[in-house]
Amino acid sequence: MNRKFRNVVYNTRLYLMLAIYVIVVSFPFYFMALTSLRSQKDVYNKATMLSPTNLILDNYATVINGSNMQVWLTNSIIVGVSSSAVALVIGVLAAYSLARLRFWGSNTLAKSVLFMYLIPSSLLFIPLYIIISNLQLLNTLWALILAYQTFNVPFTTWMLLGYFRTIPAELEEAALIDGCTRLGVLGRIVLPLSAPGIVTAFIFSFTNSWNEFLYAVVLAQRSELRTLPVGIYSFQIADILLWGQIMAAAIIATVPVLALYMLVQRFVVQGLTAGSVKA
């Protein structure tokens, strides 16, 4: 009886704490959605602050039709897809050579890939600005695609290195003996076997590029070249902060990322540890 009672207390406490976590995590998202569905006047109405009443879709219509949102969205997709695709090609080749080819310093180089990923944009943004302006690429989307390689290449390389190492070398040796070339082995054996890793690496790179802010602020300043984060931020340079519209745009920017995340959820947890912590 006593033991059973203790169990009930324990479970109640456990689920109570879990509930606090769920509320604290969910509330900002709830409030964001609520604000995005309110007119500029209702946004400031204290009486209905927390209840889902008087909801309208006007902000979404205004944001999509009335601003540069479509341009920013397109820019974000172009930059996200191309910078991840380029990084993936470089990452596959680099990771494969680090995983299989034994050359002097290949082990040290493999370790330093992770350290390269850790070099922060706050350290690199000024030199990158100068380099890119010397290349006459300032205020082009190329600038961002190029700059994002500084984190996407080390990231994809590190992540794929972990995957490639799990593929038994015997498989590849057999193919080599049968007359396959190194690149043939890569294309016919290694890539198909590491497909989940490649998809995950692509999605992670895409998300990182999608969310990137500092390089985007510095390297593409003209309105028609902005990506979503910088574009949405520019909604608030006006005298009045249009929170309804900002939150609507923020939701539009969040949905693709959350959708991709749900799609690869089981890899994400793995990826957190595989990609950034261990191979």
Partner: peptide
């Protein structure tokens, strides 16, 4: 729950920053 509680980490940082600024 593990997936749910990971949301703040997955959501774009600029969205988090703007939402909290508003809150």
């Amino acid at each position: 729950f593990r997936g749910w509680l990971l949301f703040p980490w997955v959501a774009p940082t600029f969205v988090t920053a703007l939402t909290w600024r508003w809150m």
